[in-house]
Design a binder for these strands. Structure first.
Lengths: 342, 342
DNA sequence: TTGTAAGCGTTATCAC
DNA sequence: GTGATAACGCTTACAA
């Protein structure tokens, strides 16, 4: 029933006093156990345990000049798709004794610079950035701190930055080609907002080029850019079916837009994918579980986090690493719905 | 094209030298601008800017004994539902100049203690814990550090801990009552694993008591406990329809199980919710967007993060705060599907 | 193998 | 309003 005794947290010198050794020995015993005599080790460990000693991270960081902390800068955790990556990243870092500092910027470039600065100030040992397009000031800041970093969720075309990701353009091309193979010719795209989002841009490009290579056009009226929300997906679909002559395939910039578009189809009494094939990127798992016949691309989002962690940890360990790692994008076709006869 | 000049990051004394003032003044100018003469202030700011000065967080933390960092311990980020809360938490903290340290334990109590310890070691100023059931050792650790904390995503019945959450039991009761009102009498529940998860437990309790109060039983064969995965949801549903005599309403422990169950219904050619009403807790938004007529409960998961942040920040600011804040759980009925005639 | 002691870069307490 | 200077709690040469 009583609160625990210690009113003041124990420090290294307290442990040293109790174990009757110097602080240096305690420090060694705790971080390099093999460097002290077994007997001393157990004495120190016992003392530490009875005092409930917990190291003071800031002091340790100040003295050792490393924090065992990695910062991640992401657009948002709100859009659940990044959560998978972050979860995997966190798990991999934890296994290596590192902790994750998280910051999000809500697709605002200025905020991104600000939160990254905050992370540097916190003394992170490394940085994971989502996406390849960033304010030059951000890279300048990172460089001036000689901070190890890795970009993820995309591949840096310029080859200037270490990155782990997949080729969004290629994925889009494959998705569009697949739909073409099924016989679709009337396409529409509800894209994400391409400014400040190279993922959205690459996906649009990939679709365009796949269509072009088969002589199919994407008319301006069949393209709209929307923010990543369900309601925007609904609006986007309404624009597409507005004229009465619908496309047979609608490709959405991400899962959120696709789900919104499907919801609107249901509201309009349009069968998906029989009457309109709706598809999208990122996490289409739930949608495909609930909609047989859907065409989807699967992105290995968790692997992204795992590889990003390994890349960074290797660099921190002084190993040289392949600066550019492309992950396979697995195209899963869960159904093969051809366009309806016209 | 050239990399930025500074090979070594500037420190406070560098700024002081350039501005021709003492380090004390620089420190003041940077954190308490109103305490220095305007002229000095601009001199210091200019010097800091030209040197690209970024404060050393560890040193600052060591000297000031605060890190402006809050730790959050969650079961997983994998199950997207907690991501909303974390996102809101992060946003609220960021606005107050705090950074979020994230740790997850994957529903393992030992790991939870370990990662919480790591967070304390990192010197967080406060802690957010998800759920109310935790290892006593965890609370002992927190107490011995006199660490401010708040539990969230549930209400602590014992009243011993500050918390911000909603009443899962009440939500379950309301959901079951609603289905009873619609005429359902044959119930089944695909629950989460109740051991080590008081949310799952409370939801099961709530359903049970609502049924009992109307004289309806939940037979053992109509109850199964499953981990929170889609495939477990599918299996759960198979168990329920096994005998041939189906329940008319299946309540699932969370959204993931519900979506799995619905997927299995589709696979079996069973119409949801016309033939079986499937429902669940947490995030049923996507499911309901894609399935008209679904009965769902809406949980204010983002508000949870916002309130948790406010609670902690208020305490850190020395204000006294209401230690127990219950958030309303809004029952949204998006359809009113009665049981099919038998 | 262990101890001594010099930092690590800030903040905070004093005088001035 | 500003400047010395002593902490803050730990790591790490270097010495013993």
């Amino acid at each position: 029933m009583k609160p625990a005794k210690p009113v003041k947290a124990a420090k290294l010198s307290d442990v040293a006093r109790l174990a009757k050794v110097s602080t240096a020995t305690v420090s060694r015993a705790l971080s390099l156990p093999h460097k002290v005599k077994p007997l001393t080790l157990t004495r120190v460990q016992h003392a530490a345990r009875t005092l409930g000693y917990v190291a003071h991270g800031a002091a340790r960081a100040l003295a050792s000049r490393r924090t065992r902390t990695i910062g991640a800068v992401i657009p948002t955790l709100d859009n659940a798709i990044f959560a998978n990556t972050i979860h995997a990243l966190q798990t991999a870092l934890d296994a290596a004794g590192y902790t994750l500092l998280l910051a999000s910027h809500g697709f605002d470039a200025d905020v991104e610079v600000r939160v990254t600065r905050a992370l540097l100030e916190r003394g992170v040992d490394g940085l994971v950035l989502l996406g390849t397009t960033h304010d030059p000031a951000l890279f300048r800041m990172i460089d001036s701190h000689q901070m190890p970093y890795v970009l993820t969720w995309a591949l840096d075309a310029s080859g200037k930055h270490p990155c782990v990701g997949f080729d969004n353009r290629a994925a889009a091309t494959r998705l569009a080609s697949h739909l073409l193979d099924l016989g679709h010719r009337e396409f529409a795209m509800i894209s994400g907002i391409t400014a400040n989002n190279e993922r959205a841009r690459e996906r649009l490009d990939g679709v365009r080029s796949a269509l072009a290579s088969r002589g199919v056009r994407l008319p301006a009226a069949r393209l709209t850019e929307k923010p990543f929300t369900h309601s925007a997906g609904r609006e986007g679909l309404l624009e597409m079916i507005d004229g009465g002559k619908w496309p047979t395939a609608v490709i959405c910039g991400n899962d959120v837009l696709a789900i919104g578009a499907m919801a609107e189809c249901h509201a309009q009494g349009i069968a998906v994918p029989q009457q309109i094939s709706i598809t999208g990127f990122d996490d289409m798992e739930i949608a495909s579980l609930m909609t047989p016949g859907l065409t989807t691309v699967h992105f290995p989002t968790a692997e992204l986090g795992t590889y990003a962690a390994h890349h960074l940890l290797s660099r921190l360990a002084g190993k040289s690493v392949d600066p550019l790692r492309e992950l396979p994008v697995e195209l899963i076709v869960r159904g093969t719905t051809a366009p309806p006869p016209r």
